[in-house]
Design a protein around this nucleic acid. Structure first.
Lengths: 313, 313
DNA sequence: AGAAAACGATAGCTTTTATTTATTGAAATG
DNA sequence: CATTTCAATAAATAAAAGCTATCGTTTTCT
C-alpha cells in the first residue's frame, strides 16, 4: 500500500470515473486502474462497485476512503511542517471568499499580500458559504473568508473584523429624518434583499425575525448586487442594508442617505476560516496579519451585536 | 515520499543506528540509507544528525518523526479496518501484563481465548506498568492488562474487574483474632512489600499513607514474589497484603490466616488498556469478552474502594 | 435495433525505483 | 596503531509503476 495508491483511490472516489480521475492525477487510465486493483488485491476487498454507473463505493470502500483522506492529508502536512520550519511562505494557496466580501476586502489586502509574500501563488475563488464549506471539507480550498460563526465542527475560525450593517434610506422614506435607527423598527417587507444563497441576506432575515415571528416577505425583489439594490431603493421600492465596507464606495449624494443603527450596532463577524487540520497554517497566519493590518484603520467597531449568517430554516 | 520511507525513518529514530534499523525493517543497510537520503532530499532537509554518535534527530527531524508516526499508524489501521469489516479476528497481537496479575489471571483466560480465536497469534510479555506505558506509546504493544486508573491522556482503559486486597496475618499476630480489618489499623512499618517497581506495592503505600502522613518504613524487606512474602510473614517478620486472586491458590492452612478488609474493601481496579488510536479494536474487544466471561464467576466485588496504583512521589 | 461513444480492463513494453552485494571511508575503540 | 563499527557509495539486479495500444462491455444516441 502506497500513498500514491491512496491518492488514486481518493481521486476515483471523488470523480466516480477512472478516466477522469487518472487525468486529475496526471497518469494514464490503465496506470490508475492497475494501482487501484493492486491495493484492492492487497487488502483482499473491492473498494469500488464497478457494476453501477457511475461507479459507487462499496461499504468497506467508504471506510477506506475516510481513512485514506486522513493519511494523504497527514502526509501532505509533512511538507508543510518542513516549510514552516524553514520559514518558507510559498506554494499554491487556494482561498475562497463570499461575494459580499470579495469586492470590498480583496482590493484592500491583495496588493500588500502579494508584495510581502511573492512566493505564494494565491488562487482566489468567489463562492457562497455553502460551497466554501464543501470545498474546505474535501480539501479543494486551503482557507476562506466568510461571515461567521458557522458552527462547523471541523472548521476553525479566526475573526478578522466586525462589519456593521448600515441602512440605506431613500430621501422620501420616513427613516430619512432619523439620525440612527433601531433594528426593531425594521419592517422586513420593505427591505430589498440579495438573492437567495447569500449569507448577508440570511443575516438580515435573522436580524428582522428577532422582532417577532414574521416570516420572510410575501413579495421579493432579490438581486445579486448591492448596486442594484441601491438603485431600486432610490426608485422608492424600499430600503436596503449594506455592509459597512460597501458604504465607503458610495458617491457623496448616496452617502447622505446612509443611516447607522444605534449601538450596539448589528454587525456581521468576518473571519478567516480553515479546516482544523491546519494545513498551511503559516500562510494562513500571514494572510491574517496582512488583512488585520489594512483593516485596522478602516474598520474598528467593537460595540456591536453579532448577527448569525446562518439561515434558520 | 512513501510510507516505506517513513517507516525506515521511524526505525532509525528508534534505534539510532542505521544497521540495526535496517535489520528490523528486513532490508539491507544500504537500502535503508538510500531511502532515508531520498526523503531527506525530497524534503530538502536533514532528518538525522549523523555527526553525533549515536545518531541524533535534528530539530525538524523530530517533528517529522512525530508526523511520520501518525501516518504509519493510520496506514496500518487501514488493514485493521478491513479485518474488522470482514469479521476477521486474527494476526499478531502483543499483550503486556503486569507481574502481579500475570500468574493468576493468565491461566484463567488463555486457554479459552486461543481456542475461541485460533487465528490470533498472542504474544504475551510480563512488564511493569511503566514499561507497559512506554511500549504502548511507541506501538510495541497492542494492549495490556494493568492496575488502573493511570491518568494517561493517550491510553484508554476498559475495566475488567475489581480485585480486593486481602490481609495475610500469621497466627501469632494481634489481627489474628479479628474477623475483618479496618485499613486504618494498618501499620506500614510491619507490612511486607513487593520490591520497588511493582504497582501493587505503590497501591499498598497509598492505602497506608492515607491514615496520616507516614513515610515509607525505614527498614524494608522487599521481594519480587508473594510466595516469599508469605513465608517471611510466617516467620513472624510482619503481615502482608495479597490481591484476591492470589489467595485462591493458597493451601488450606495458609488460607486460615487470611483476613478480609471491612467493606468497602480497598481494591485495585484491573483494566485492559490500549492506545486511544484503537488499533486492533476487534481483538481487544474479543479479549475483554473472554476475560469477562471467566472472571465473572470468580470475582464479583462491587462495594469496594479503588486504590490508585500510581506512586505519589 | 444498430452504430457510436464511453469507459474500464488487459497485454506487452519501457522507464523508474527499490533493493541487493560488494566495497569504501570515516570515526570510535581498545 | 590496529581493529572494529557504522554509514555512504558503486554497480548490478529485481521489482514496480508507468505508457501505448487494444479489447470488451455497457450506455447513449440515432
Amino acid at each position: 500500500m502506497t500513498i500514491t495508491q491512496l491518492t488514486y483511490v481518493l481521486a476515483v472516489a471523488e470523480h466516480r470515473n477512472f478516466t477522469l480521475a487518472a487525468e486529475k492525477c496526471f497518469v494514464t487510465q490503465p496506470t490508475l486502474s492497475m494501482q487501484i486493483q493492486k491495493i484492492e488485491d492487497e487488502l483482499g476487498i473491492l473498494i469500488f462497485d464497478r457494476s453501477k454507473k457511475p461507479i459507487q463505493l462499496t461499504e468497506i470502500g467508504n471506510k477506506i476512503v475516510t481513512q485514506a483522506k486522513n493519511i494523504v492529508n497527514e502526509s501532505i502536512r509533512i511538507k508543510d511542517i518542513v516549510d514552516q520550519q524553514k520559514g518558507f511562505i510559498g506554494g499554491e494557496f487556494r482561498l475562497g471568499i463570499i461575494p459580499t466580501i470579495m469586492p470590498t476586502l480583496l482590493p484592500m489586502f491583495l496588493n500588500s499580500f502579494i508584495k510581502k509574500y511573492p512566493k505564494v501563488n494565491l488562487i482566489i475563488e468567489e463562492l457562497n458559504t455553502e460551497e466554501i464549506l464543501t470545498k474546505l471539507h474535501n480539501n479543494h480550498l486551503d482557507a476562506a473568508i466568510a461571515a461567521t460563526p458557522l458552527e462547523d465542527e471541523k472548521i476553525k475560525e479566526l475573526v478578522l473584523y466586525y462589519e456593521p450593517f448600515v441602512v440605506y434610506v431613500p430621501e422620501q422614506h420616513e427613516f430619512s429624518s432619523q439620525k440612527t435607527i433601531d433594528p426593531n423598527q425594521l419592517d422586513p417587507n420593505e427591505i430589498l434583499l440579495l438573492r437567495d444563497g447569500h449569507c448577508f441576506r440570511d443575516g438580515i432575515l435573522n436580524l428582522c425575525q428577532r422582532r417577532d415571528n414574521i416570516h420572510p416577505p410575501a413579495f421579493e425583489i432579490a438581486s445579486g448586487s448591492f448596486e442594484t439594490l441601491i438603485k431600486l431603493a432610490d426608485e422608492g421600492l424600499g430600503i436596503t442594508l449594506l455592509p459597512y465596507l460597501h458604504t465607503l464606495d458610495l458617491n457623496d449624494k448616496n452617502r447622505e442617505k446612509l443611516r447607522q443603527f444605534r449601538d450596539p450596532k448589528p454587525a456581521r463577524e468576518v473571519s478567516l476560516i480553515f479546516p482544523k487540520s491546519e494545513l498551511k497554517l503559516h500562510i494562513i497566519e500571514a494572510l491574517r496579519s496582512v488583512i488585520n493590518g489594512v483593516v485596522k484603520g478602516a474598520i474598528a467597531f467593537h460595540d456591536v451585536e453579532i448577527i448569525s449568517p446562518l439561515s434558520k430554516k
